[in-house]
Amino acid sequence: MEWQLLRDLSDAERRQVLATARRRQFKRGEILFHEGDPADTVHFIAEGRVMARRTSPMGDSVAFRVIGPGRALGDVALVSSARRRSSTVSALEPTTTLSLTFAEFAQLCEAHPGIQTLLATLLAARVKRLSDHLLEALFLPTDRRVVRRILDLCEQYETGPDRRVVIPLTQTDIAELAGATRPSTNRVLRALETEGLVQLRRGQVEVVDRAGLTRKDR
């Protein structure tokens, strides 16, 4: 597994850091932390996947990101003066994280300055991705947004080349990620199923023809 935020370390150094981290386990649906909570730890996902949600100005909870193995949680709070969680994160499946306190992570960065540079690069990429999603919400039709989010999710859930990808998310989850309503998302998914690109099952979407789905986004 590639530990994205720790790739500046040697294999031996990475193993040493992860060996000292606290192992935490979360059940499906369990909250890792809430938006606005005080932040004092960074989590590295060892197993499982989580969903990040934020509260809209209207008070609605909106999903915006699925995070999987090798990625970090809580890194935004590392560079925030408020030291508060910027989103609510819940486990989509049984999930194991390895956590370090901010003090421990600061010591790690002091010993390996490249991690700070990498953190800045990753956060900049995340800001760009969110900006891209905002532009999509303003200028792209719903069908294109739904297709793009499904393709993004394929990268999270793929198990090997040229295989079907099963995405174990509800249509409501996909609608939130696409910035669309559930009825509109259902209409798009039904059309994709009719074209033989996906198969819909209770609580999941199976991508049958990923190449064909990619062509729909052109």
Score class of each variant (00 low, 15 high):
residue 25 Q to W: 12
residue 24 R to W: 14
residue 37 D to V: 09
residue 37 D to P: 07
residue 81 S to F: 14
residue 39 A to Q: 05
residue 40 D to W: 13
residue 59 G to V: 01
residue 72 A to N: 07
residue 52 A to D: 08
residue 58 M to Q: 14
residue 55 T to P: 06
residue 41 T to H: 12
residue 47 E to M: 07
residue 44 F to Y: 12
residue 70 G to A: 13
residue 62 V to E: 05
residue 61 S to K: 00
residue 77 A to R: 04
residue 64 F to R: 11
residue 30 E to M: 10
residue 57 P to H: 03
residue 70 G to M: 04
residue 29 G to C: 13
residue 37 D to I: 06
residue 34 H to A: 11
residue 27 K to F: 11
residue 43 H to C: 07
residue 68 G to Q: 10
residue 76 V to I: 13
residue 43 H to S: 10
residue 43 H to N: 10
residue 52 A to N: 02
residue 41 T to C: 12
residue 63 A to N: 01
residue 58 M to S: 14
residue 42 V to G: 05
residue 65 R to Y: 09
residue 79 V to C: 13
residue 73 L to V: 07
residue 38 P to W: 07
residue 59 G to W: 05
residue 54 R to Q: 02
residue 44 F to I: 14
residue 65 R to Q: 10
residue 29 G to K: 08
residue 38 P to E: 04
residue 70 G to D: 12
residue 72 A to R: 01
residue 39 A to N: 07
residue 67 I to V: 14
residue 34 H to N: 12
residue 37 D to C: 09
residue 29 G to D: 10
residue 51 M to T: 02
residue 66 V to K: 00
residue 73 L to I: 10
residue 69 P to H: 08
residue 67 I to H: 00
residue 47 E to D: 15
residue 33 F to M: 11
residue 62 V to Q: 04
residue 65 R to D: 01
residue 38 P to A: 12
residue 53 R to D: 01
residue 35 E to I: 00
residue 53 R to V: 03
residue 36 G to P: 08
residue 77 A to G: 08
residue 31 I to D: 07
residue 24 R to E: 15
residue 75 D to W: 14
residue 57 P to T: 03
residue 39 A to R: 06
